[in-house]
Computed example of a mutant assay.
Amino acid sequence: MTSKNPTIHVLGPERHAGWACVSPTSALADLIDENKQHVMAYIKPFPRNSRGCFSEISRWTLATSQGISTSPKVWIHLLSPERAREAWPDQIWPDEPTICFASAEINNDIADCQFQTDSPLLIEMLLKWPMLYHTIALDIWLDNIDSHAGNLIWTGGNDFVVIDGAECFGGQFWTAAQLENPAYSINKLAALIGAIDDFAPTASAKIKILAASTSHNAAFISCESLLQEWARKLIGPQECHAPLDALRRGLGLVNTRWNTNALQPTH
């Protein structure tokens, strides 16, 4: 498994060169990157009270550091009020730039092949994916409640690209108190491949997922300073410590139900 140290640049409103297409929650835009090169990137705006942008950064950073295929490059884009109102005229936008998570478009002839079913063919393809258990382990560690097949892009062969990490830490509107006592959730990818049986992990899947989680410590050490920096910027001084504390507690999944045989909710 290869890894690399990720970098995230901030692109100001003047770096937006135009829209390619717009959906209700995101858009494909022509941006001018830090090297003054035009790049096509998907941008997702977040309201001020959302922690979704930090969640996206966390998942992208930790996935990249572990060699899990994801967008090759991401940015924080400050979207101007004019551009926001142009793209989404039915929404209310502040009179100041909106923080967006921007991820480079995945250039692949079959990149539109996103799976949203539990077809036997999909499960067979997933089980051949070398990073399947690393991805499941990462999303359990991050408490990504939106880890499902629809957020995977097949790029041919036995590889998938993971996208959309906004719902990590139990959802984008988490509080510090909620991170200390996380709600119960089942990893949807683990359930899809049959790694969970009657609320308990199967023995073989448990071994593979816990083995994959041994890479978390090195990934966290390499990304900690970057995550701390973005937590201070995006979350603020009062609760910026909370997501990193949660990640420390979950290193290697030691404080998760994957180290027990009782995945059912506790009362």
Rank of each mutant, 00 (worst) to 15 (best):
V74H: 00
C168M: 04
I186T: 11
Y133T: 13
D159L: 12
S69F: 00
A262L: 04
A219Y: 05
E56L: 10
K206Q: 15
I221V: 14
A205F: 14
Q178A: 15
A20C: 12
N158F: 09
I193N: 03
T175V: 07
L132Y: 03
L127T: 07
S50I: 02
H148E: 11
G150Q: 04
L210V: 09
V254A: 06
G12R: 12
A190G: 08
V74K: 00
P72E: 06
F220Y: 14
K36Y: 09
K4V: 01
L263C: 00
A212K: 06
I123W: 08
D164N: 15
D197V: 09
C240D: 08
Q228P: 02
P237L: 05
W230E: 01
G12Q: 14
I106M: 09
D95I: 10
A183I: 00
E167F: 10
A137N: 06
A177T: 11
G165I: 01
A17M: 10
N181Q: 15
H77S: 06
L263S: 01
F160D: 11
E167S: 13
Q37V: 13
A84W: 11
L62D: 07
L31M: 08
G252T: 07
R15D: 13
I32A: 01
G52N: 11
I140L: 13
E34K: 09
I43T: 13
A29P: 02
I57C: 01
T256V: 04
N255M: 01
Y184F: 09
P45D: 09
I76W: 05
L126H: 04
H38W: 07
I235Q: 04
A231E: 03
T256Q: 02
P182I: 11
G52M: 02
K128E: 15
S119N: 14
M40E: 10
G18Y: 07
K44M: 06
R232K: 14
W154K: 07
